[in-house]
Nucleic acid binder design. Structure first.
Lengths: 158, 158
DNA sequence: TATTGTTATACTCTATAACTATA
DNA sequence: TATAGTTATAGAGTATAACAATA
């Protein structure tokens, strides 16, 4: 058994490629939504509210994997801009249910457009068939790994 | 033209899947190398030194996309453990060339093993053919997007 | 007493820029 | 004067835990 030679150009594994490309895609998306004056965390929050309106901040914090205290400032930042509103639950006045305003829903449309443009830019080197194949493979892995659909698991560090 | 209905389960784009899976893979890898008492940033530095020994800290900082001042503590942390050594360049004594020690090279072997196990865990839902297909597609996208091979573009935020 | 949301505090991490030594 | 590396400072962002309102 011979000791392995120095591996200068060790081919990166698929998981490393995933992590690297994921960080790259996230950085490019951050640049794009900055044009809408949004941070990734704000965008993730808007997306989560749009997907399931009326949730309390506690529920939302658990879904996003962040301490409730952090949600306060985040919700403030989008509520101050009239994108989200807190509605007190009359039955239990401790709960603040989160809803998008009309402006918020309109902005979600623009976010979706940005997302499609972003997708196109990242995948431009693949033809339609390969794009579909890649997406199917990623979906399969994401499901197996237990990722919550539509939620960025690294929300804590956005 | 009818206004679009509320899109509750908008299928996530491939780029979003990439970002989400990338963050997931990075988080799982962080857990694994913690068993070797390493942070992702330390691991990235070791990898970069192994790939191209003898570089100065300035060069390394540029490659990794981080301010040189941050490299100091990072190099200290691995040098104190005897994994890396700074060698002064006799020709220009301002430069500190970075090399792995024998212990550092041995640890790289273990890191490679951890990386392979990590890969296997992330991709376990795909058969060998699909793993190869995914890897080829990711490589194509990474190359098109201008990613430096073997370098994590989000090194700044590790 | 328990829970929701909020605020306060302390801590970690980072970049910027000043500083030292070499050139 | 310019550059490599280092150190100091200040700022951003976070989690933990204390707090107020409601149940």
């Amino acid at each position: 058994m011979v000791a392995s030679a120095p591996r200068l150009e060790d081919p990166p594994g698929a998981a490393f490629l995933l992590a690297a490309l994921g960080a790259h895609a996230a950085a490019r998306f951050t640049e794009r939504i900055a044009a809408l004056d949004l941070t990734p965390a704000q965008t993730g929050l808007l997306r989560a509210i749009a997907a399931d309106p009326g949730q309390s901040q506690q529920t939302m914090a658990q879904l996003l994997g962040t301490p409730p205290s952090r949600l306060v400032g985040l919700v403030d930042s989008v509520a101050d801009r009239g994108l989200v509103e807190r509605r007190r639950n009359p039955g239990d006045r401790r709960l603040h249910a989160l809803y998008l305003t009309e402006d918020g829903e309109a902005l979600m449309e623009r976010i979706s457009t940005v997302g499609r443009e972003h997708d196109e830019a990242i995948l431009r080197s693949l033809d339609a068939g390969d794009q579909a194949r890649l997406r199917a493979l990623l979906l399969r892995v994401a499901e197996d790994q237990g990722l919550t659909p539509g939620v960025h698991p690294g929300f804590r560090h956005l």
